[in-house]
Amino acid sequence: MKGDPDLNMLDVLCPMHLVVRNDGRIVHVGPTVQKLRPDMTWIGAHFFEHFDVKRPKSVQSITDMRRKVGTKIHLALRGDPSSDLKAVLVPRSDGADDVVINLSFGISILDGVRTYGLSNADFAATDLAIEMLYLIEAKSAAMDSSRQLNLKLQGAKIAAEEQAFTDTLTGLKNRRAMDHVLARLVSRKLGFAVMQIDLDYFKAVNDTLGHAAGDHVLQAVAQIMVEETRAADTIARVGGDEFTLILPEIEAQQTLLNVGERLIERLEKPILFQGKECRISASIGTVWIRENQNVVPKDILSDADIALYQSKNAGRARQTIFDGRRRPLVS
């Protein structure tokens, strides 16, 4: 077989081929097939000792394979390492019984070159395998880069949204966030309470001690509100010295009264700013919405405002619970 010009030609054009006799005996392998099992003597071995036909299932011999000339056959290389291969078979044209079976890694090309340490020289110069490998690497790199950009943009988006819902001075939620929460609770007809809180005497702090003192007080107030509420409650700063609390799952009016009382009590303790005492208090108006009530956010807020003004008019530093019949109960 050595020096057969046809075989030399095949070695260049399709270096991953085998020439097999009708009885299954291998009489020649291309240089790349040799690389799959470098230490093995291919010549004289039986084709089906080393290859399983996976599809079509009906093919179990070279005679069967001859009926599939020119069509794709799925093979598996036996032994270790094993590989799935695509194959196509043609009979030799010189009248002999031999068939030429050309192999390819198909889609497993990357595994193939890695497993067997193949190089450019192991593929025909016209084989697109190298371009395929190039594309896999280039696309993976580009995709990786894009993914990083996506993650970065996603992070920036979350941060921007976070900012858009946050009052930057106090770190509390802002009015937008509060509207959002309120709308959600209303649409689900859940039970909750809305507490409208106005700081009393805050303007005096601002006027006498300056804006820095005012800002400091607002931050301290925010801190107190966070401490006096549950994690599930929403605390929003909705104006200069106006706050709205949304408290879900309230079981009893007394709970609300307790929260309001504690808040006022703590807010009335002097807040120190640069050694000076800032004294404020708070007026509160609360609306308690029971489960399955048909309400609209606008009315809830205006009812809370009515209750709040009752507190203010009654002398500040107190809370009022809106009783639903527009006859607020001042306590």
């Binding site: 193939g112 070159v113 890695r114 340490g117 190089s119 450019n120 490998l133 690497e137």
Partner: peptide
């Protein structure tokens, strides 16, 4: 050295 199938 240039290995075709080097890890990415």
């Amino acid at each position: 050295q240039f290995e075709l199938g080097a890890p990415i």
